[in-house]
Every structure is written in structure tokens, then in C-alpha cells.
Amino acid sequence: MREFEGRTVVVTGAGGGIGRALALRFAREGMDLALADVDEDSLEATGRKTREHGTRVLTQVTDVGDEASVNELADRAFAELGGVHLLCNNAGVYMGGRLWTRPPADFEWTLRVNLWGILHGVRAFVPRMIGQDTEGHIVNTCSVAGLFAGPGAAPYTVSKWAAFAASLTLAQELALEGTRLRVSALCPGGVVTGIHLSERRRPASLRTEPGEDSAFMAEMIAATVAGGIPPDEVAARVVEAVREKRFLVLTHPAYEPGLAEQAAALSEGRLPRMPDFEWTG
């Protein structure tokens, strides 16, 4: 999909970070927008900024972990904007800790948002996007942690590997069916966002007590975010990937040697080395 003007994009997690950057970039490209976030105030702030570009903007408070909530977003987007051509399943949360020490609620929360948010988005939007019989694209925000399984962030890493698997499966299925839709798996690393603060919007029913492992990783992710690249750079890479129909979208070119190294280790039956997520050596 090379042309954006006059078409419609849906962005979840649009209240800040990468989601807001995507919304602003696509507004500048002349797209109409359906924006979603669980936080109403931050969502409306994004809505105000995007409306300055003169395109139609719909905002809807949406819990991507709830199927009915995502279906309501899809119903409004198709009814009020006339169709959807680009879907960015971007909403995400972070939780660190070891696989054997963090309680089930940590995994339930991260999977609910990071995986089920994508699955609900696909099920709500993709059948209707196929039915439009127009060019279209789905961008799922997966994370570099969905490519390299490092220690200490088990809930997040498990959810993001599942998100990557869902994206790859979707891309292959859409190609096999001969549709006009393409898929990109966005795998950002260090980006200046508020993901390290995502627990403030965690449902009360899924809250847990922090442990020393999760507290340590919270400090690590905060430092990674502080030293990351601007979200605008990520949005630019997404625009380029959609135009070029690229599946894997990396935010840091230095990740590429790490992928080759990991593939070599796995092909030889070896455990890949513990990754430096910035792949600086």
C-alpha cells in the first residue's frame, strides 16, 4: 500500500509513545484516523493533535483485551469512516520477572494486552478488510523481545513471542488466501515511551505484589526507555515498511547480526547467547 491520503488507519495504544507518533505521522500523510486507548485523557490529547492536520478523527476508549470493546471500535470505524485500510495493533504493556517466580496474574495481564489485543484486532477488522477487496496492511507491535528471548522479563517476553507468532501466521494465511492485505511485525527496541509505567493502568483484579526480580527489571526497562530513540523514528520506519510491503520492521539496524547469530545457534542445536537487546556488542 503506497498511497495513504484519503484512506483510513486504526491505531490502538494511541494515547502516547509509538501509538501517538503513528497517529500523527499518518494524519500528516492525509489519512482519516480511528484512535483507541484505555486512557481517555491521553487519547483525547492525541485526538486534538491529529485534528490539527484537517483529517477526520474518531476516538474511542478501548480495552484491547476485551473482545466486545474492540468490536465496538471496529463497528464505529467502518460505519463512520467508511472503511479501514491500515490497522496498527499497537497497544502494549510491560512486566518483568522470572518465569518461575512471577504469579499467574502477571502472565494473564501481559498476554491479555500484548497477545489478545492483537487477536481481537485481527478478528474484528481483518474479515471486513478482506471484504473491501482493496489494498490494506496490518502492523502488529511485537518488540525485539519477541525475537530474542532474554532472561528476567518472562511475562513480557512470552507475550511478545506469541505476538510475533500470531503476526507471522496471519501474514502466511493472508498470502495463501490470495488477499490484498499484507502484514508487518514491528519489533522496536529502546524507544522513548511510557511503557515502563504501564502498570498504573493495570486492572485491579490482576494486580500483584512486586518482587526483587520484577523491581530490578523495572529499573532496567526505565533506563532502556530513557536512552531510546524518539517514537517519530519508529513511525517513519513503519510508513516505509507499509509502502515496501516489508514483514519484519526493526528499529535498530544493529539487531540484524543478532538474528543471524541466533539462527546459526539454533540450527546447530545450541542455546543462543543471552542477548544485549540493543545489540551493541
Rank of each mutant, 00 (worst) to 15 (best):
R2I: 11
E3G: 02
E3L: 12
E3H: 11
E5N: 06
E5L: 03
G17Y: 12
L24H: 01
E29K: 08
G30K: 04
M31A: 13
A34V: 07
T46K: 06
G54S: 11
V57T: 14
V57W: 04
V61I: 11
G65K: 00
G65N: 00
V70G: 03
V70Q: 09
E72M: 12
R76F: 07
F78D: 00
G82D: 10
C88R: 09
N89T: 09
A91R: 05
R102E: 15
R102K: 11
D106C: 01
D106P: 01
F107L: 08
W109V: 08
R112T: 09
R112M: 13
I118C: 10
L119C: 06
V122S: 07
P127T: 10
E135W: 09
I138W: 02
A145H: 05
A145P: 00
G146V: 04
L147K: 07
G152Q: 04
A153H: 04
A154G: 07
P155I: 12
T157C: 15
A163Q: 11
A163H: 03
T169S: 14
E173A: 13
E173K: 13
L174A: 07
A175W: 10
T179R: 04
C187N: 12
I195E: 03
R202C: 11
R202P: 05
L206R: 01
T208R: 09
E209G: 03
E209S: 13
P210T: 02
T224C: 05
T224S: 12
T224Q: 07
V225S: 09
G228L: 11
D232M: 05
D232Q: 15
A235I: 05
A241K: 02
A241L: 10
F247I: 09
L248A: 06
E256H: 06
G258I: 03
L259A: 01
A260D: 07
E261V: 10
A265S: 14
S267K: 03
E268L: 11
G269F: 06
G269Y: 01
R270N: 07
R273W: 05
D276C: 01
F277S: 00
